[in-house]
């Protein structure tokens, strides 16, 4: 077809590829080398990225089997259950045993999903109840996720041995650094349940009534929790929501409620670090 004789240089020219024609041999050889190399790079990046993840911390969501707890219901600032420490404690792993001399344990009570609180709670305030649900626990701090059933939290007719009511002990004004998290995710519902990527979820949880907690570190880098309430002792003001999940410095009135550290906090006393 060509009027010109093929020139020697034409033989050494790079193979020309057209998608709908068979791939020239040298090019096919190149691809058989390039594609496996690319796949190996993918695997290496995947392993490196996966290895670079941080330890989310030891936390357990015992969501396999629901258990029953008997105790005194407390409605404010957040739904809680006051239980004798011996109550149904056999399942507790040694690593999570609380280092406390307290004579009773306070469980935060939350619902499934990102909710807390249900109808008729105020009528139960201070009364003996039976609660059934799943526990979440971290650093010896435990929470109960109630079963969705309406009877999962009910007044108890039979008398129980009433645990000693926790005493509120004011400890003065403190300034603390840490992160405001929602207690449910942080205690094990989501791992990790902290930090920037979890910020939106924590906001949604706290908006849905999950008790907010300030996580700080003591001088030994151990985690210390402060349950956050507003200055009048009610649930934390919504003005604090934009600071959830950020590294913050807060100033508030520190109280001990039994074994719980409670911080009375006004949104204007929160600043981003």
């Amino acid at each position: 077809m060509s009027a010109l004789p093929p020139r020697p240089s034409a033989l050494s020219e790079p193979p020309f590829y057209v998608g709908y024609l068979p791939v020239p041999k040298p090019l096919a050889a190149f691809l058989w080398l390039a594609v496996p190399i690319a796949l190996s790079i993918l695997a290496i990046v995947a392993i490196a990225t996966a290895r670079s993840q941080r330890d989310p911390g030891g936390a357990v969501w015992n969501d396999a089997k629901a258990r029953e707890f008997h105790g005194i219901f407390i409605a404010r600032p957040y739904p809680m259950l006051l239980v004798r420490p011996t109550e149904g404690d056999t399942s507790k792993p040694d690593s999570l045993k609380r280092d406390t001399t307290s004579s009773s344990e306070l469980f935060l009570l939350v619902e499934m999903g990102k909710h807390a609180g249900r109808d008729g709670l105020s009528a139960m305030d201070g009364k003996p109840v039976v609660a059934s649900g799943w526990t979440l626990e971290r650093d010896g701090r435990r929470m109960i996720e109630l079963e969705p059933d309406a009877k999962a939290l009910a007044l108890q007719e039979t008398s129980i041995s009433v645990p000693p009511t926790p005493v509120i002990v004011p400890r003065g004004r403190v300034t603390l650094q840490g992160e405001i998290v929602d207690s449910k995710c942080y205690l094990g519902a989501m791992k990790p349940g902290e930090g920037k990527t979890h910020k939106a979820c924590a906001t949604l949880c706290i908006r849905g009534g999950i008790p907010p907690v300030l996580v700080t570190r003591d001088e030994n880098e151990a985690r210390v929790y402060y349950l956050l309430v507003d200055p009048s002792g009610g649930p934390l003001d919504s003005g604090a929501w934009p600071f959830i999940g950020d590294p913050v410095e807060v100033t508030g009135d520190f109280e001990l409620l039994g074994e719980f550290r409670v911080l009375k906090l006004s949104p204007r006393d929160i600043s981003r670090r």
Partner: peptide, 13 residues
């Protein structure tokens, strides 16, 4: 490639 990536990531995690 995607299967290798996701498999390696999930496996290592």
């Amino acid at each position: 490639g995607i299967a290798i990536y996701l498999g390696a990531f999930v496996g290592v995690s």
